[in-house]
Structures are given as structure tokens and as C-alpha cells.
């Protein structure tokens, strides 16, 4: 069967859409202070922000894996209203403006928050302004990406393998670790990578809930935002680093995730 020719108008609009993505990236690359890039890379502010970003985003991903996979398993087992409510709650951080997420975290885990006040009164622990707060903000915003991916993987799983294992006498945990999780590996992997990338780029919830202090809560996106006003070269260099990381992830995942869409 012959495919219909694509009208020129569609091509034109697609081209305009593509330009919207390509031009800002070109701007970043063309205006990058390449000669100073190396000096900026070794600047303590840059290395500290980069180290903190990597630490926080990896920790957030690890927490998302530990909490998100069980959540996805429960989600995949539910139906009807329960499922809709659970799904809405899980995906809420994806649609919520991150700054609003930060305020919500504040009201829950701040010194006067619902849970935070108990923590403060009992142990004198204050979460905001700490690296813990930055990790929590990133987990809050990024975990839905992992949950959604794993849940989709679970729903499309062929459950006959699990039934076969069970009929051969394997217990719940053995089936889970030897059959279910290995079968889910692609979904977990792509979900974790998307989750990590979202955590790495997190800005709004982090700056609201965790504040800004170099080495403690100042991640790369926050450093970019601050440097823009005082040291634009450093801001562009840091942006480029994030750009390179993002492109590397997308290229690396092309077959596993994007190819399947």
C-alpha cells in the first residue's frame, strides 16, 4: 500500500517546531565561552554544584527505585476507582508546578509542617535547608517517571512465566526476584534513567524547599540561575554540561525507550 504524500504545510509546521528546539541549543553552543570553559569547570562553585547534583540525583533515583517499584506493583494490581485515585496521586508531581511542589513539601516537612513539626519537636531535626531536603524535593518530582514506566511494564508482562514458576514450587519472593524483576528490567532501567534525568534538572521544588547554599543545596540548575546574573560565562558552561548529559542519556536510550514509542 502506498503511503499518502505529506502535505507541505505539515512539513513546514514540523520544521518550525524543530527550530524551536534547535535554535536555543545552537545559541548555547555558539555563545559558549569555550576558551574559559575549562577554567569554569575547575571553579570550586562549579565542581561543588556538579558533585552535589550527581549525589542528590543518584540518591533520589535509588530512593525512587526502593519505593517506586512496590508502588508500581500495587498500582498494577488495582482497578477502577482505586486505581484512578492512586494514579492521580502518583502522577500529580508531574503536572504540579515544581515551585508549588516545594511549598507543599514545606507545609508537610517544614519546621511547622504536618510531619516536620513532630520531627522538630521530638528530635530537633529540621529538614529544609539541608541536602536531605534537596534529595527529597528531587525524589518528589522525579519518582512518578519511574512508577509510570514500571507500572506499564508490569501491565504488559506475560504472567504465564510467573504462574509456571509458582506451579513448580517457587515462593512469592523467589518468583519476584528470579522471574518478575528480571522480566521488568527494561522498564525499570528506562524508568530509572528518566527519573534520574528529571532529578538532575530539578530546580523549582529544590530552591523553594531546600533553599540555596553552595555545597549543601546549590545544585547545578540553581547555580546556573544564580550565575546568570553575576557570571554569565559560568552559567553557559554549566548549562552545556547539563545539555551534554541529557543528550548522552537520550542517545543511549534511543532503542530501549524512544524507539518503542
Amino acid at each position: 500500500m502506498r503511503r499518502a504524500r505529506t502535505p507541505a504545510a505539515i512539513g513546514l509546521l514540523a520544521g518550525l517546531g524543530l527550530l524551536l528546539f534547535v535554535l536555543p541549543l545552537a545559541g548555547l553552543i555558539l555563545r559558549a565561552p569555550w576558551s574559559q570553559a575549562l577554567a569554569e569547570l575547575t571553579d570550586p562553585t562549579t565542581t561543588m554544584a556538579l558533585g552535589l547534583s550527581i549525589f542528590c540525583s543518584l540518591t533520589a533515583t535509588a530512593i525512587a527505585l526502593v519505593l517506586g517499584i512496590p508502588l508500581a506493583m500495587i498500582l498494577a494490581r488495582t482497578r477502577g476507582t482505586v486505581r484512578n485515585v492512586l494514579r492521580a496521586l502518583t502522577t500529580l508531581p508531574m503536572v504540579l508546578p515544581p515551585v508549588v511542589g516545594g511549598v507543599a513539601l514545606w507545609l508537610a516537612f517544614g519546621r511547622r509542617g504536618i510531619a516536620g513539626s513532630l520531627l522538630y519537636q521530638a528530635f530537633g531535626i529540621q529538614i529544609p535547608f539541608t541536602t536531605t531536603a534537596a534529595v527529597m524535593a528531587e525524589t518528589f518530582v522525579a519518582m512518578p517517571f519511574l512508577v509510570i514506566a514500571v507500572e506499564a511494564g508490569l501491565r504488559s508482562l506475560d504472567h504465564r512465566y510467573e504462574e509456571a514458576a509458582r506451579s513448580l514450587g517457587a515462593g512469592y519472593w523467589r518468583v519476584l526476584t528470579r522471574v518478575t524483576l528480571p522480566l521488568l528490567r527494561p522498564a525499570i532501567f528506562s524508568g530509572a534513567v528518566l527519573c534520574w534525568a528529571r532529578a538532575l534538572g530539578e530546580f523549582g521544588a529544590t530552591i523553594t524547599f531546600a533553599g540555596n547554599f553552595p555545597g549543601r543545596t546549590q545544585t547545578v540548575p540553581i547555580a546556573v540561575y544564580l550565575a546568570l546574573e553575576t557570571k554569565p560565562e559560568a552559567a553557559i558552561t554549566l548549562s552545556l554540561i547539563l545539555l551534554v548529559v541529557s543528550v548522552a542519556i537520550l542517545v543511549g536510550m534511543r532503542d530501549r525507550w524512544l524507539g518503542a514509542l
Partner: peptide, 21 residues
């Protein structure tokens, strides 16, 4: 030793008003 360096003075005010600082 500040806990946070805010990007505008109103950020400082809101942190104190909310009781976080």
C-alpha cells in the same frame, strides 16, 4: 553561617514568616 542565600529579599522574609528560619 546562613542556612540559605535567597535570590530576593522577599525570600528571606517569607522564610522567617513561615517559621522555617
Amino acid at each position: 553561617k546562613p542556612a540559605s542565600l535567597e535570590q530576593q529579599v522577599t525570600g528571606v522574609l517569607s522564610k522567617v514568616a513561615f517559621g522555617e528560619a
